Simulated assay, not measured.
Amino acid sequence: MGDTESLEALGQALAAAGWRAVPRYDEIPVRLRVFHPTLPVVGETVNVTSERTGPWFRSSTGRPLARCDDLPRAVAAIDQLLGRFLPAREPITEGALTR
């Protein structure tokens, strides 16, 4: 799976969890802008990097989020990063995504 396909899959998983994901595939490297619909001014930009263990999703600060084949963990990492900026709510957990 290429970078664009990995980001597309992440975008779909994030949308299912209530996040908005806007692809930036015309940029190099390709990116995915993620934010919550109720707070579009706060977000994260995710790209894909190649590591020894395979492709990883990385935040705009370079923080590794999850391997590209672990979408539940990637969604949970985004939720952890951005969820704190939202009004009080129950955070998304990895287990909630697999139910």
Rank of each mutant, 00 (worst) to 15 (best):
G2S: 01
R24D: 09
P72C: 09
A17D: 00
V42D: 07
V42Q: 08
Q12F: 02
T61Y: 09
P23M: 15
G83S: 07
V42F: 10
L39T: 01
G62Q: 03
A96M: 15
E5Y: 00
D69E: 06
W19F: 01
M1N: 00
I28R: 05
W56G: 01
R58F: 06
V30G: 04
G83T: 08
R31N: 05
H36T: 04
T53K: 09
E94S: 02
A77V: 03
P40N: 12
D69A: 07
A96K: 14
L97N: 08
A77K: 03
S6Q: 03
R89F: 09
T98G: 11
P37C: 14
I28Q: 08
A77F: 07
V34I: 12
A21Y: 10
L71T: 05
Y25I: 02
E94C: 05
A16W: 00
S50I: 05
T61A: 13
T38F: 12
L39R: 08
G43V: 05
L97M: 10
L32F: 02
V42E: 13
A66E: 07
T49E: 15
T61H: 14
E90V: 11
G95M: 11
A9I: 00
F57T: 04
Q80C: 04
A21V: 07
G62L: 10
L10F: 01
V48H: 15
R33K: 11
V22S: 08
P72F: 11
R67F: 10
G11D: 02
T98R: 15
E94A: 06
R31T: 04
P37A: 15
I78Y: 06
T49A: 15
V41A: 14
Y25V: 05
S6P: 00
T45R: 11
V22F: 02
V48L: 12
V22D: 11
G83K: 10
T98M: 15
Y25T: 06
L71R: 06
P91S: 10
G2T: 03
R63M: 10
P72H: 03
R67D: 04
T38E: 15
M1K: 00
N47C: 07
P64W: 08
F85D: 07
P64T: 04
R31H: 05
R84L: 06
A21K: 08
A17T: 00
S50L: 12
D69M: 03
V34Q: 08
A74S: 12
I78D: 09
T45P: 02
V42W: 07
G62D: 02
T38Q: 15
R67N: 09
D79Y: 03
P40G: 13
G54R: 11
T49F: 13
E44S: 14
S50V: 07
F35I: 04
A76I: 03
E44M: 15
F35K: 09
P72A: 05
T45D: 12
R67H: 12
P23N: 09
L81Y: 02
